[in-house]
């Protein structure tokens, strides 16, 4: 998933070993490999470009500082994104941003996803131009609760698998899937409703 430039660089465990031996160039390779997925995720979570750059920098620095605690039997990307997710939770807590926690437990049974398909003969979404739909999608994404927005971004913007997302959030795969469906249904309703 989620790697920016994976063809010419060594694999993650090799890079981590090299960093731990004092090769800082290897850490720069890690940064270059993950900077795009990281910024694609963080920028859509914090909205401001400069803030996204600052937060992402801090995430990479935190990862560097705790690299010795990384265990190679796990995926490096999921470890890195867990640091990012936790960093955002701390960041919002410190700033006292009134938002739904990324880790807030929720009722996964009442999500509207078990409903039968309604009569959907008319749909605004199908008729929109791609450019227009992208703009509206970005706005609709901002309206999602943070814990659903995060999963939607991971799944559809950074291209993570459900298994990777479950590993990051330490949740069962079924719960993650259910929440992604929930996010998508909310997005669809927002897109259909918005003029």
């Amino acid at each position: 998933m989620i790697e920016d430039n994976r063809s010419s660089v060594p694999d993650d465990p090799t890079l981590v070993r090299r960093v731990l031996r004092g090769d800082q160039g290897a850490f720069e390779m890690i940064v270059r490999k993950y900077q795009l997925p990281m910024l694609n995720y963080v920028s859509r979570m914090v909205h401001e470009r400069e803030m996204a750059l600052d937060v992402s920098q801090e995430v990479f620095l935190r990862a560097y500082a705790s690299l010795s605690s990384f265990r190679p039997e796990f995926k490096f990307s999921t470890w890195l994104f867990r640091i990012a997710s936790n960093y955002l939770i701390d960041h919002w807590r410190k700033k006292k941003v009134p938002t739904v926690s990324l880790d807030q437990p929720m009722d996964d049974t009442d999500d509207g996803c078990h409903l039968q398909v309604a009569d959907e003969k008319a749909s605004v979404i199908r008729d929109l131009e791609l450019k227009e739909l992208r703009t509206r999608l970005e706005s609709a994404m901002d309206c999602l609760p943070a814990h659903l927005r995060e999963l939607f971004i991971w799944r559809h913007v950074t291209g993570m698998s459900y298994e990777e997302m479950a590993e990051i959030k330490k949740l069962p795969v079924g719960t993650v899937k259910n929440r992604v469906f929930q996010a998508k249904e909310m997005m669809r309703k927002l897109l259909e409703e918005r003029p």
Binding site: L130, L133, L137, E138, H156, K184
Partner: peptide
Amino acid sequence: RIAKTAESLPAFKI
């Protein structure tokens, strides 16, 4: 279409 559009959103300019 929603899923495909989300996948085609412009990347962050680093």
